[in-house]
Computed example of a mutant assay.
Amino acid sequence: MKLFRINSVGTALRALISWPLLVIGLYFLAAFAGSSIPVNSDWREPDQGIPVFVETNGVHVSLIVPMSAAGEDFSDLIRPEHLSDSNIYGTHAMIGWGHGRVYRNARTWGDVKSGDIASAIIGSDETTLHIYHVIDPRPASHRKRFLVSQQAYKSIIASIRSTFRLTTGGRSKAYPAYGANNLFYDSKGHYSAYTTCNEWTGAVLRKAGIRMGIWTPMPGGVMRWFD
């Protein structure tokens, strides 16, 4: 009887450990598969167009877009007076969306807190836009440049605009972030293990007709399409 109890406890412990590992493994497998299957597979970068960038810090993938191009202007939402020094107002905005607490607490994977991970997996309406002011960006190993048509660019801007949560007066609301050149903004959307920060970026590009994986929850799932 004692041996039976020991074996039962051992079996239960193995199941307790193995099931979460199995779920995590299946999640990463699905993420790899989703990011490998293209949507808009016939998309080709135009010979002439508006330059857009994707940039990763290893955790988040953000879009870098001009503050003003093709008749679109972000200055009504991303306003110079939001900055402590308006002289660093960018020619471009690097824009990412995600779980509010993860974004505020985690510049790198080493900063991620277990409680924030749990909240992100379960799902949360506590989301934010994180916007850096960038001046004349150039391609780099972590930043990929590509051209889009005016129509695609307008779609990208419309998707970003629709993510801002505005006040009753129609204004965006900004909060301090990691430094003088970047801010957090109130945003709409529900964050979850399915709709991650990187999937938001992938969805914006898919909607604009740009070749992208059908599901891109991880940073590599977005960046791989521009290598």
Rank of each mutant, 00 (worst) to 15 (best):
L26W: 03
Y27K: 14
Y27E: 08
Y27S: 10
F28D: 11
F28M: 12
L29Q: 10
A33L: 14
S35F: 03
I37K: 07
V39Q: 14
V39D: 05
V39L: 15
S41M: 07
D42Y: 13
D42W: 10
D42C: 02
W43D: 11
R44W: 01
E45N: 04
E45M: 12
P46S: 07
G49Y: 09
G49T: 09
V52N: 01
V52E: 09
V52L: 11
V54A: 05
E55P: 00
T56R: 07
N57T: 09
G58E: 13
V59G: 02
V59C: 07
V61A: 03
S62G: 13
V65D: 02
A69M: 05
G71P: 03
G71W: 06
E72G: 02
D73V: 02
F74R: 05
F74Q: 00
F74H: 08
D76N: 15
L77Q: 04
I78Q: 06
R79W: 00
R79F: 06
P80N: 01
P80C: 06
E81I: 05
H82Y: 05
H82C: 03
L83D: 04
L83H: 06
S84M: 08
S84L: 14
S84W: 04
D85C: 06
D85N: 15
I88G: 02
Y89V: 12
Y89A: 01
A93M: 06
G96P: 04
W97F: 12
H99C: 03
R101G: 03
R101A: 08
Y103V: 04
A106K: 10
T108H: 08
T108V: 13
W109I: 13
K113S: 12
S114P: 07
D116C: 12
A120Y: 00
A120K: 05
I122N: 06
S124P: 03
S124L: 13
D125A: 12
D125F: 14
E126L: 09
